[in-house]
Design a protein around this nucleic acid. Structure first.
Length: 256
DNA sequence: ATGTCACAGTCCCTGTGA
């Protein structure tokens, strides 16, 4: 089973890239973030023509998360169940695996109220993951807006005083892991940076100025069946690309 | 730090978010 996560930075703007990537990469499941559209605009039919069932949790202008699947899409949950919440998490049961598509708040700046919101949001997610049914294989993917370690940052000195790299954010991410989840790409590749995001500005991609902030957190069952994980940098080279590249995990699942 | 991109509304520019 091949499961990928991709922050597409507007599905409206990115449809050509997303549709061609699905046709060539053929993941069984794709977790999407930043669709930036309402459910009414989400291309359910376009995805169906490509062979995918889909579920979306959208809003008017920002955020928006989705799950596409070729292996079934059942028991969908949208958000944390809080009133007026932003569209940042959706989960479903796909081919016997509970998958989450997460778009963690950016944080903006350390002294911005949005930074506290980011930490609260992560704590709410942790509680949900801690309460999950451990008998069901689980994958939590998405744009976490946190680089887990300095290996995940092209120049740690350039990020002093910035979000995405602080101890408190990394501790919040590690707390998700303490519910029994492992960072798949880093586990399989302990030393390669495997950046997944490059700023549109400054020619960052060409210069290799990236961060690894798009992650696949997997439980022990999935970790034991994992055969590969990689970043598809080709997608970042395309015309009018997202600033994020897809992150892929492959599993040799033998589920009862 | 900032050489870009995308969105909605103020609607062909501006403010916001990343």
């Amino acid at each position: 089973m091949k499961i990928a996560t991709w922050n597409v930075n507007s599905l409206t703007a990115r449809w050509p890239r997303v549709s061609e990537w699905l046709e060539s990469a053929q993941p069984d499941v794709l977790l999407i973030q930043e669709t930036k559209q309402t459910d009414a605009k989400f291309p359910f039919e376009g995805f169906a023509e490509l062979g995918y069932e889909s579920a979306h949790f959208g809003q008017v202008q920002w955020n928006g998360v989705a799950i596409l699947s070729k292996v079934g899409l059942e028991d969908v949950t949208r958000g944390f169940g809080e009133p007026e919440e932003e569209a940042r998490v959706i989960s479903a049961l796909c081919g016997g695996v509970r998958v989450f598509s997460c778009y963690v708040p950016n944080g903006r700046a350390l002294d911005n109220p949005h930074f506290e919101y980011k930490l609260r949001w992560l704590e709410t997610l942790r509680k949900i993951l801690d309460a999950r049914d451990r008998s069901v294989p689980t994958l939590v993917g998405g744009d976490f807006n946190i680089a887990p370690s300095d290996l995940d940052v092209y120049d740690p000195l350039a990020f002093e005083g910035a979000t995405h790299v602080t101890p408190v954010e990394r501790e919040a991410l590690a707390a998700l892991g303490e519910t029994g989840l492992t960072d798949l790409t880093r586990h399989l590749h302990p030393e390669e940076p495997n950046f997944s995001w490059w700023d549109y500005r400054n020619g960052s991609f060409r210069r290799g100025w990236g961060l690894r902030i798009d992650l696949l957190l997997v439980d022990e069952q999935l970790l034991g069946s994992a055969t590969a994980s990689y970043v598809d940098r080709e997608a970042r080279k395309a015309e009018k690309p997202s600033d994020h590249a897809p992150v892929v995990g492959e599993f040799d699942l033998r589920l009862g």
